[in-house]
Amino acid sequence: MTTAETTRNVTHATFVIERVYPQSPARVFHAFADPKAKAKWFHGPADEWSEETREMDFRIGGRETSVGQLHRDATPHAFSALYQDIVPDRRIVFSYDMLIGDRRISVSLTTIELKPEGQGTRLLFTEQGAYLDGYDDAGSRERGTRELLDQLGRSLMD
């Protein structure tokens, strides 16, 4: 026996996160659309993470790839997205894969909606995910996304 048999399965789960930021929809949209602005907040935990590559082509049909590793496991974590729909200052839709090493752990469809709220912006983040082969997400994707949206909020104050 040289290879372990992989148990194949798909677990579906959806989560929704809402945030209100004091900045305008145009400012919040920019934090997703501009590679430099996005790099300020879209990354793993600062003291546990090293980035390897980052590429971004923000247009419908364009791709984004971000690869990094956690210091503790030295295994590449790869985010690979395809932009499916973009309406400036209003919404962004992308599908993405996550790979740990060469194992695809999930495929997800993400919708970001931005709505004016007073002087600020209400952000609605909806993620419809398929988790693969027993990868036990146990809510970690949602927690990780909440942390990212907190980092986004801090980056808007710069």
Binding site: N9, V10, Q84, D85, V93, S95, V107, L109, Q128, A130
Partner: peptide
């Protein structure tokens, strides 16, 4: 012989009407 996952867009007369992620097991 196990599964297929794909995302897709639908356009009607040039307008995007939907974006979907399908899993077939």
């Amino acid at each position: 012989d196990n599964r297929i996952l794909y995302s897709y867009d639908m356009h009607m007369d040039g307008k995007k009407i939907s974006v979907s992620l399908a899993s077939i097991e």
